[in-house]
């Protein structure tokens, strides 16, 4: 599904170079809920941004469904991005659009007709349990509700993959759990592969079947969650 091959990312500025990823390879299979855990600054956010090329790797290749997206033209890449939903720590909703229009936004970009887009948006609102908020604006919602809208928006174009960048880090424990449960049910019912970037072991333990531990630009350990967690407990 997702194959990251020897990806290196170097940020250059006047002060010098910063190595964010150092030849990282990772494979995510269809249906996985793959956790990437590490301390801040370890490179995990860069890694997830290399999957949809919000950050372009300095070296290395990224494949989605066997297609090398690092070799694609911009217009092809935009099409691929529509099949890779993404949610963020700060939600990043359009603040001047109401809930339903936020969910319709990616459909509009994908060229889906108005009537169909509205139907789809309402379905998604139902899925995330916010039917009664369709005409509210993001500023009127709680953090958990905003993340639900963001999830609905990310799922609008029926993506194969959902990328989550610290998606629960701004939320309280109870809300975190409800968002994680929602993600899990999306994974199971829609078969969406999920990649979760987090610094909380709890998140990995709760829903990830596989996990990679990232430390100073390298993946130091990866595999099934139960094995990795066991390893940590031994340590």
């Amino acid at each position: 599904m997702i194959k990251i091959e020897n990806v290196t990312k170097i940020y250059s500025n006047k002060k010098g170079d910063f190595l964010a990823l150092d030849g990282v390879s990772l494979e995510v299979e269809k249906g996985d809920i793959y956790g990437v855990i590490g301390l801040s600054g370890a490179g995990k956010s860069t890694l997830v941004r290399c999957i949809n090329l919000l950050e372009r790797p300095t070296m290395g290749k990224v494949f989605i469904d066997g297609e090398e997206i690092t070799a694609m033209k911009k217009s092809e890449l935009r099409k691929v991005r529509q099949s890779l939903g993404m949610i963020f720590q700060d939600f990043n909703l359009l603040m001047q659009r109401n809930v339903i229009d936020n969910i319709r936004f990616p459909l509009e970009i994908a060229g889906v007709g108005k009537v169909e887009a509205k139907k789809r948006a309402l379905e998604l609102l139902n899925l995330v349990g916010l039917e009664d908020k369709s005409h509210s604006y993001p500023a009127q919602l709680s953090g958990g509700q905003k993340q639900r809208v963001a999830i609905a928006r990310a799922l609008a174009n029926n993506p194969k993959v959902l990328l989550c960048d610290e998606a629960t880090s701004a939320l309280d424990p109870v809300t975190t759990l409800s968002i994680l449960n929602l993600l899990k049910s999306i994974n199971q019912s829609m078969g969406v592969t999920i990649v979760i970037i987090t610094h909380e072991m709890k998140v990995v333990e709760t829903i990830c079947n596989k996990v990679a531990v990232i430390e100073s630009a390298n993946i130091v350990k990866n595999g099934l969650t139960k094995d990795i967690i066991g390893h940590f407990k031994e340590v």
Binding site: L54, R78, Q82, F105, I109
Partner: peptide
């Protein structure tokens, strides 16, 4: 960034 991730 979110808009770019949606293929804008």
């Amino acid at each position: 960034e979110a808009a770019a991730s949606m293929g804008c």
